[in-house]
């Protein structure tokens, strides 16, 4: 189990370190790269939870699809000018109040739901491996129990795609 713990901390460090570096780098391409590192860390955490389908989808969609689009836009737009300018304004007070508010909110909900959290007991029996693979289980749940939300979500995405095309067309004319 030691190797699991070590791997968990490596992935967690990738997620957090990547996230911090994403928002502190001045060069937009470097930020995108660190965001990819962070997303890969999340994929690793999925794999540790034996959710191999989510792991693959996380990489195919986020790393291989969405982030390539991000990078594409960053490369198309000339950001050299923006990188040289001062990017961070000094509204310390507003930022501090906002952070404190969000922190208090999260703290309150954690306090309210404190009975819902369990720290796994050391030496507790590990859940038996599922007879079905992660992919099959996900498909079963998605297409039986959560069929309606799934269809609604797909309709929503379709509307967004059609809307994007319509707006892009309008701008050309």
């Amino acid at each position: 189990m030691l190797i699991d713990t070590v791997l968990f901390y490596i992935f967690a460090a990738l997620v957090l370190g990547g996230g911090i570096l994403t928002i502190t780098r001045r060069n937009a391409v470097h930020s995108a790269m660190w965001l990819i590192v962070s997303l890969l860390g999340v994929a690793g955490l999925y794999l540790q939870q034996q959710a191999e389908f989510l792991f693959a989808v996380q990489i195919v969609l986020y790393v291989g699809g969405i982030m390539v689009l991000f990078l594409f836009v960053i490369m198309l737009v000339n950001l050299d000018q923006a990188a040289r300018e001062r990017q961070f304004n000094r509204h310390w007070f507003v930022a501090l109040v906002a952070v404190a508010a969000v922190g208090a909110e999260i703290g309150y909900f954690i306090y309210r739901g404190r009975t819902g959290f369990h720290i796994a007991e050391l030496g507790a029996p590990i859940a038996a491996p599922h007879a079905l693979g992660n992919t099959e289980m996900l498909a079963d749940t998605l297409f039986s129990e959560y069929l309606l939300p799934f269809e609604i979500a797909s309709l929503l995405l379709l509307v967004a795609v059609v809307g994007a095309v319509v707006m892009a067309k309008k701008r050309i004319q």
Binding site: I36, E52, F53, F55, A56, V57, I59, V60, V63, G64, G65, V68, L71, G133, T135
Partner: peptide, 17 residues
């Protein structure tokens, strides 16, 4: 791998970088 096909897709999609 039980997700061999997806793994190949995932890895090849990262090759574009």
């Amino acid at each position: 791998l039980n997700i061999g096909v997806l793994f190949v897709l995932a890895v090849s999609s990262m090759g574009v970088y």
